[in-house]
Each structure stands twice: as structure tokens, then as C-alpha cells.
């Protein structure tokens, strides 16, 4: 079997050396190299995956963006598109679309344990990239409480930790665990699973 592994100008970088090693392991390194540029290029904080201590900012903001606070997330509203902010360097991690996040504020009493343990006073964060073919998740049904992917109509339940409830996606949406420092939303840990398509 021939496989094109050479880095291509259009190929995105891998998330980070540490994450790639964690996700791939030695035996699967070859497979991972087929999915991204095998240069572990992202020591650049903008392209690195969110890490503990990161803050969150609105994805469509410009210039200096203020870290989001609990009061910025309206309960029961449609999800906000957000990005992680490297607190140390002040860099918004917008170098990879796999860092896009959906923020929702749900009734804490409605959260199942898989969501509650990663929530901050009802605020939950999910990867905004569908686990089927990698499309952006932009739609939310407030009636059904479901996130919806426009490409192939996979549906996910945020209150159940991003569980897939319909459509072709083979796995749940990765969560990004959150905590509060004062009233500021802070990333508590990395994604619960690899964001992006399942190929």
C-alpha cells in the first residue's frame, strides 16, 4: 500500500508533540503521520490544543479579547463560539480549527455525571468540530437540547457529556473540562478525547 506521507503546504500541523505521542503511541505513529504534518510543528501556542490554566475568549472577537466570565454565558441561550487563550503569553489559540469550542450554560441539575464533572456552575465546553467528518457544529435546538452538525446531521446531547444521539458520528463530542477562578472561566484539563473527524 502506498501512502502519501510527505508534508504538504496545505497540510495542518499536528496539535503538539506531547498530545500526538499521547494519542498515537509508538505503534500508531505512522497512522498519525498520515493525518497531519509529522513535524510536531506546534510549539506555537496559537496552534497548540487547550491546556489547563487557559482562559476562554469569543471566537469572533478582534484585538484584545477579555477572558469570558460566568456572567457572559447566558443560561439556556444558544451556544457561544469560543477559543482558548494561553494565559501565559496572552495568545489566542486560533491556529487550528480543532480548537474551536462551543460554550453552553445549562441547569446544573440537568447535567448527567459525565457532563457535571467537567462543568463550571453549569457552563460546559465542547469541541465545535463533529467527530464524523470534521464539520463545524453551528446549530443548537433549544427545544430538544441538542447540538446539530450541518454536514450529515449528527446530533449530540450536551447535558449527557456530548453523547451522540443521532446521525453517523461514531463517538461523542470531546469536552473541555472547566473550572472557575473567581468568576473567570478557566480550562481545568485538556480535551477528554481527540477533537476532529474519526477516520
Amino acid at each position: 500500500m502506498h501512502r502519501s506521507d510527505s508534508p504538504h503546504p496545505d497540510s495542518p500541523p499536528c496539535a503538539s508533540r506531547r498530545e500526538a505521542l499521547r494519542l498515537c503511541g509508538g505503534a500508531l505513529a505512522g497512522l498519525a503521520s498520515g493525518l497531519c504534518t509529522p513535524a510536531f510543528a506546534n510549539d506555537d501556542p496559537a496552534g497548540a490544543r487547550p491546556q489547563a490554566g487557559d482562559r476562554l475568549v469569543l471566537a469572533d472577537g478582534e484585538g484584545q479579547r477579555a477572558p469570558l466570565r460566568l456572567a457572559d454565558i447566558e443560561a439556556g441561550a444558544k451556544p457561544l463560539m469560543a477559543l482558548p487563550l494561553d494565559a501565559a503569553s496572552g495568545t489566542v489559540r486560533d491556529g487550528s480549527r480543532l480548537n474551536k469550542l462551543l460554550l453552553l450554560r445549562l441547569d446544573p441539575a440537568s447535567l448527567e455525571p459525565s457532563a457535571a464533572r467537567n462543568a463550571a456552575d453549569g457552563v460546559v465546553a465542547f469541541s465545535a468540530v463533529c467527530t464524523h467528518q470534521g464539520c463545524n457544529i453551528t446549530e443548537f435546538s433549544t427545544e430538544k437540547g441538542l447540538l446539530l452538525c450541518f454536514c450529515h446531521f449528527s446530533q449530540f446531547r450536551p447535558a449527557a457529556g456530548g453523547e451522540r444521539v443521532a446521525g453517523p458520528a461514531p463517538r461523542r463530542l470531546p469536552m473541555l473540562p472547566l473550572k472557575l477562578e473567581g468568576d473567570v472561566l478557566v480550562v481545568a484539563d485538556g480535551f477528554t478525547s481527540r477533537p476532529g473527524a474519526t477516520l
Binding site: H2, R3, S4, D5, V129, G134, C135
Partner: peptide, 17 residues
């Protein structure tokens, strides 16, 4: 006889796979 697969960028979204 043979098989080829071009690698897919990790960030690619496939609306029509």
C-alpha cells in the same frame, strides 16, 4: 494489485465524503 490512499489533513471537513 495495489492500493493507494492520500493522507487527509487532520482539520479537513468533508461535506461530501
Amino acid at each position: 494489485l495495489w492500493r493507494y490512499q492520500k493522507s487527509i489533513p487532520e482539520e479537513l471537513m468533508q461535506l461530501h465524503p
